[in-house]
Design a protein around this nucleic acid. Structure first.
Length: 264
DNA sequence: AAGTTGGTCAACCGCATCAAC
DNA sequence: TGTTGATGCGGTTGACCAACT
């Protein structure tokens, strides 16, 4: 016998989350921590699938999430990482603090893809389109689509080792074999300190760090990302969760939120 | 003003992998 | 050690909104 099913399909609610459901989920996770998603809906009093709860938390409710469009530097980083990793959005997201795989995937499909096409770059292979046309002409016609996918995967596999070795290195020094594109990227990253830091940090460390902030510190320091954090709080209604670690300033923001909720 | 189209993004679906039994 | 469920991930869908006709 294996485990119990994650949720009985009967009576499970689907569709958009209400503010009330969000509150219940946040309250539960802040109180009990992030464990065993199967049990979360029941314990939190939600008629949702555990999977749905996890998704809602990781993609929308996590306090360390950034909001708004990706910056130029972030976008450039996504493009570079996509060239290395392919469509492995979770890996890419792990290197952009405060961004989710879903968010990056959406941004890629709606913005970056078009941008690259406009620039004459194939968003799948990251090769110039004219160059690709020439190589496709030279190849057998049956190998086109599968080839680009395959080469993308191969590229991703090759780059796994690159990325892993980067991650294992605690130094902020770039890899010695980086291309001119990489150098350009690094310039962008260096302009954005937080990005620069995250670029070389191990993924697990990133996750742990963000969770440490929530569980033990309560809030990031005022200097670091205070605006982003306060904006996040607006989405939460954290004052309802019995946390006493917020300053008056933050409560002012939360009052604003409350007004918004009353409208809903 | 009403209808249509296109863009955006939250959420769902299904598959792969891992781990519990 | 095989089976089965949990979890994570990428792909896809659909609701909502703004721009356009």
């Amino acid at each position: 016998m294996g485990r119990q099913p994650c949720c009985d399909k009967l009576g499970v609610k689907k569709g958009p989350w209400t503010a009330e459901e969000d509150k219940k989920l946040i309250n539960f996770i802040l109180t009990n921590g992030q464990c065993c998603w199967r049990a979360v809906p029941k314990l939190a009093g939600l008629r949702r699938c555990g999977k749905s709860c996890r998704l809602r938390w990781t993609n929308y409710l996590r306090p360390d999430l950034k909001r708004g469009l990706l910056s130029e530097a972030e976008e450039q980083l996504v493009i570079d990482l996509h060239a290395r990793l392919g469509n492995r959005w979770s890996k890419i997201a792990a290197r952009l603090p405060g961004r989710t795989d879903n968010e990056i995937k959406n941004h890629w499909n709606t913005h970056i893809k078009k941008k690259l096409l406009k620039m004459g770059v194939d968003p799948v292979t990251h090769e110039p389109l004219h160059k690709q046309l020439l190589s496709e002409e030279a190849e057998a016609p049956s190998s086109d689509a599968s080839h680009s996918q395959e080469s993308g995967n191969r590229c991703a596999a090759e780059n796994d080792s690159i990325i892993n070795s980067e991650a294992n290195s605690s130094s902020s020094r770039p890899p010695e074999n980086c291309s001119s594109d990489d150098s350009l990227l690094l310039d962008n990253i260096c302009k954005n300190e937080s990005l620069g830091k995250s670029m070389w940090i191990d993924e697990a460390a990133l996750v742990d760090e963000s969770w440490e902030n929530i569980c033990h510190v309560g809030l990031p320091s005022v200097e670091e990302n205070s605006c982003a954090w306060l904006l996040d709080c607006q989405d939460f209604g954290i004052h309802d969760f019995g946390l006493d670690c917020f300053s008056d300033i933050e409560f002012n923001v939360l009052n604003t939120l409350e007004m918004g909720e009353n409208i809903n």
